[in-house]
Simulated scan of single mutants.
Amino acid sequence: MKALVDTLRRTARLMVGVPDYEDYCRHMQAYHPELPVMDRTTFFRNRQEARYGGKNGGRCC
């Protein structure tokens, strides 16, 4: 049951454009082990800025 809930949660996040933090961590460990891994909060903010633009990135709010 937990696996199903995790899969549904991951699918819902991807549908609204929120990448998976655990996938990011696995990717960094596999392909960029020399680089630091962002914490969950920093990762979330980074992905928001990439999607919606950074500070004053053309949006009013």
Rank of each mutant, 00 (worst) to 15 (best):
N56D: 12
M15L: 15
R47F: 01
Y52E: 10
V18T: 06
R40C: 09
Q29V: 02
Y31F: 05
V18K: 15
F44C: 07
Q48W: 00
Y24I: 02
R47K: 14
Q29M: 11
H32M: 03
Y31R: 12
E22N: 13
T42Y: 07
R47D: 04
F43H: 09
Y31P: 01
G54K: 07
M38K: 15
P36V: 00
F44I: 02
D39G: 12
H27F: 10
C25G: 03
D39F: 01
T41C: 12
H27V: 00
G17R: 07
E34I: 02
Q29A: 13
H32E: 15
K55W: 15
F43T: 03
Y24T: 04
F43W: 05
D20W: 01
P36Y: 01
R45I: 02
Y52L: 11
Q29S: 12
C25V: 10
N46R: 07
P36S: 09
Q48F: 09
Q48H: 07
V37S: 02
G53H: 12
Q48P: 05
G53R: 06
N46I: 00
D20I: 06
T42H: 15
T42M: 13
M38P: 04
Q29H: 09
M38S: 13
D23Y: 08
V37D: 03
A30R: 11
D39A: 06
H32I: 04
E22G: 09
Q48D: 02
L35F: 03
P33A: 10
E49W: 06
F43V: 05
D20E: 14
R45E: 14
V18W: 07
R47L: 01
H32L: 09
N46F: 08
N46W: 03
G17I: 06
V37E: 01
P19W: 08
E49T: 02
Q29I: 01
V37C: 05
H32Q: 13
G53L: 06
V37G: 05
L35Q: 14
D20N: 15
Q29E: 13
H27N: 07
D39P: 06
H32S: 05
Q29W: 04
E34F: 00
G17D: 12
N56L: 09
Y24G: 04
P33N: 04
G17C: 08
V16P: 07
Y21P: 09
Y31D: 10
R40H: 12
R51N: 11
H32K: 10
E49D: 13
A30P: 01
M28R: 12
G54C: 08
K55S: 10
D20F: 06
K55P: 13
